[in-house]
Simulated assay, not measured.
Amino acid sequence: MSMTQEQKQALVNEAVEAGKNAYCIYSKYVVGACLQTPSGKYIRGCNVENASYGASICAERCAVFSAVAQGEREFDAVAVIGMGGAVPCGMCRQVLNEFNPKMVVLVGDLDGKIVLDTTLDYMLPHAFGPSNLLDLNLKE
């Protein structure tokens, strides 16, 4: 997907807004994310921590799960913001890969400055995805 600089900045700004809802009382590390669908719809997510740390969720996965709950299954781009620039972790890269290995990934700081502009397939080479399961002929 080709995005103008203005479109990229708009998506990062949505991630900044999402970060304002972060529940990060333990780490104090705010992360916001925003997905963009092919129709241009924005779907936000933020990190949500829990006293049982393993029950916490990253902003990117929060956005994906929210999008899926809204019936969305296609994403062209994701923006993620955090202090100094929050690059998606491996688990988030894997979840994003499920929906579009070629999506644009924008990383920004808390002020919305873009610090990295790349693609998911560059960040997660040789990924395991749905196509790896096609030959299994899974049946219920």
Rank of each mutant, 00 (worst) to 15 (best):
M1A: 14
S2K: 08
S2L: 10
M3W: 14
T4W: 05
T4A: 05
T4D: 03
Q5L: 12
Q5P: 00
E6I: 04
E6Y: 03
E6L: 06
Q7L: 10
K8G: 13
A10G: 10
L11N: 06
V16T: 15
V16D: 15
E17A: 15
E17K: 15
A18L: 11
A18N: 13
A18M: 12
G19K: 12
G19I: 09
G19C: 10
A22F: 09
A22S: 15
Y23F: 11
Y23H: 09
Y23R: 11
C24E: 08
Y26K: 11
S27F: 11
K28E: 12
Y29M: 13
V30Q: 04
V30S: 04
V31G: 01
V31A: 09
V31H: 00
G32V: 05
L35M: 06
T37S: 11
S39V: 00
G40E: 03
K41D: 13
R44D: 07
G45P: 01
G45V: 00
V48H: 00
V48G: 00
V48M: 06
E49N: 04
E49M: 07
A51S: 12
S52C: 10
S52P: 00
S52N: 12
Y53K: 12
Y53V: 13
G54I: 08
G54S: 12
G54C: 02
A55P: 00
S56H: 08
S56R: 06
I57N: 06
I57E: 08
A59Q: 07
A59W: 06
E60F: 04
R61E: 15
A63I: 07
A63V: 07
V64D: 07
V64T: 05
V64S: 07
A69E: 14
Q70L: 11
R73H: 11
R73K: 11
F75M: 01
D76C: 14
A77R: 01
V78L: 02
A79Q: 04
A79H: 05
V80F: 01
G84H: 02
G84S: 03
G84M: 03
G85H: 02
A86T: 10
A86S: 12
A86M: 07
V87L: 11
P88S: 05
C89R: 01
C89I: 06
G90M: 07
C92H: 06
C92M: 08
R93Q: 15
R93M: 14
N97G: 11
N97M: 08
F99R: 00
F99S: 01
F99N: 01
N100I: 02
P101T: 08
K102V: 09
M103K: 09
V105T: 05
V105Q: 03
L106V: 12
L106W: 07
G108E: 07
G108N: 13
D109L: 04
D109T: 05
L110V: 06
L110A: 10
D111F: 00
G112T: 14
K113T: 13
V115K: 05
T118N: 06
T118C: 04
D121F: 09
Y122E: 15
Y122S: 13
L124V: 02
L124P: 03
A127S: 13
F128N: 14
F128Y: 13
G129S: 10
P130S: 13
S131G: 09
N132Q: 10
N132W: 07
N132R: 10
L133D: 07
L133G: 05
L134S: 14
L134T: 14
D135Y: 06
D135G: 15
L136R: 10
L136S: 09
K139N: 12
K139W: 05
E140C: 04
